[in-house]
Amino acid sequence: MGSCPGTSLDGLDICFAAFEKKERWNFQILQAETLPYPQKWEEKLRNSIHLSPEELLKLHSEYGFYLGQKVQEFITKNDLENIDLIASHGHTVFHQPHKKFTLQIGDGRAVKIATGLPVVYDFRSQDVLMGGNGAPLVPIGDELLFSGYDACLNLGGFSNISLRQNNQRIAFDIAPVNIVLNRLAQKFNKSFDENGDLARKGNINEDLLEKLNTLKFYSQPHPKSLGIEWCTESIFPLLENIETGNVMATFTEHIALQISDVINKNNLQNVLCTGGGTYNTFLTEKIKEKTGSKIMIPENEIINYKEALIFAFMGVLRMNNEINVLSSATGSSKDHSSGIVA
């Protein structure tokens, strides 16, 4: 079972899945649900980056028990049995791999106490200590569960992509998506821009678009990853004092340009597209317009729960002491089996 809170704070994804290895790994999603955060929890997590050390440690424990409680409620509600483990990603507060640290709160030991089940957690820290970006981690699942596609594109808080290049799986973050668009939608008293309708009504600000497209991150080689700190430093200041609808239209264009540039440069013919941003039809239309590729949008189950599914899979690999992080994707010194077992 995998639990994975989104960076855009749209809720807690819980996925109960079965995995079987014959000639290759197969999976089945048996039950899944997204639990929206109550307002108090959304505010706590959003403000976690500003807490004192003592307050943050308190929230780390408190959120771990909250996750455990929600998982236990999910198990009871669905009469689930024969659960081998819980894989819990936690909520990212800090992500600064160049300084050798990343922090996902939600203590896995608290999840174990609340559920009585083995828990694998803290999937990113080991990779960062080994010189990697600690992200993206999902490529191990793309490689072993979704290898029928040229690439897997995720449109979540950030967009990232994984693909095979020179006989190895590479992956990297492309650009912010919902972490910016949702924040802008809140100015219209909406939690997100449904179908991209708000952005569709706006006009592109060419000056802003150029400033966004020339940010240093986009010209850097992979592996590379993004965090909220980068948005606070490099993105949000650029968006001030411009009409919000036009900012949304411009930022959506920016996302589509950055993603299509990666797809076109790598000559990708069929791309699996998942994550909450997939429902932003204005964005996906723009990506399709700018590429000659087939952008494959799967059933809702995969769109919504692919990341939670793969973290569950990573937990299975970790319990078997098998590789679950690819150095070709993260930039760490070698492939490894990551995650703390409670």
Rank of each mutant, 00 (worst) to 15 (best):
I170W: 06
Q28V: 12
E307A: 11
R318V: 07
Q69A: 04
P139A: 01
M296H: 15
L35I: 10
K224G: 06
S337M: 11
E73C: 02
L153T: 05
V119Q: 06
M296E: 15
Y121S: 15
T274I: 13
T115A: 00
E20K: 14
L103Q: 09
L238D: 08
A256N: 04
K190D: 01
G245P: 00
D150M: 07
N324L: 02
A185D: 07
I302H: 13
L57E: 13
D84A: 10
M314V: 01
E143Q: 15
G11Q: 12
R109Y: 05
N195C: 05
V120T: 07
P53I: 13
Y66Q: 05
H222G: 15
L208F: 11
A114R: 03
G106C: 10
I228G: 09
Q69M: 05
K288G: 01
N320S: 14
R164I: 06
K265W: 01
Y66F: 10
P118A: 14
P221I: 08
N182S: 05
Y305N: 08
R46M: 00
F217T: 04
K100V: 05
H98M: 10
I263V: 13
V325P: 02
V316P: 02
A87Q: 01
G227Q: 11
L56C: 12
P53R: 12
L103I: 14
V247H: 01
N267E: 12
P38H: 11
W25V: 11
Y37D: 06
G156Y: 06
I340S: 10
H89S: 10
N304C: 07
P97G: 09
P118L: 13
K100M: 05
I303T: 04
K21E: 09
D127Q: 09
A114Y: 03
T252Q: 02
Y63C: 10
I297S: 07
E23P: 08
Q165E: 14
T34S: 15
H336I: 08
T102W: 10
E62P: 00
E43F: 03
G292L: 09
A342H: 11
I113N: 08
F313Q: 05
L30K: 13
Q39M: 11
G275V: 01
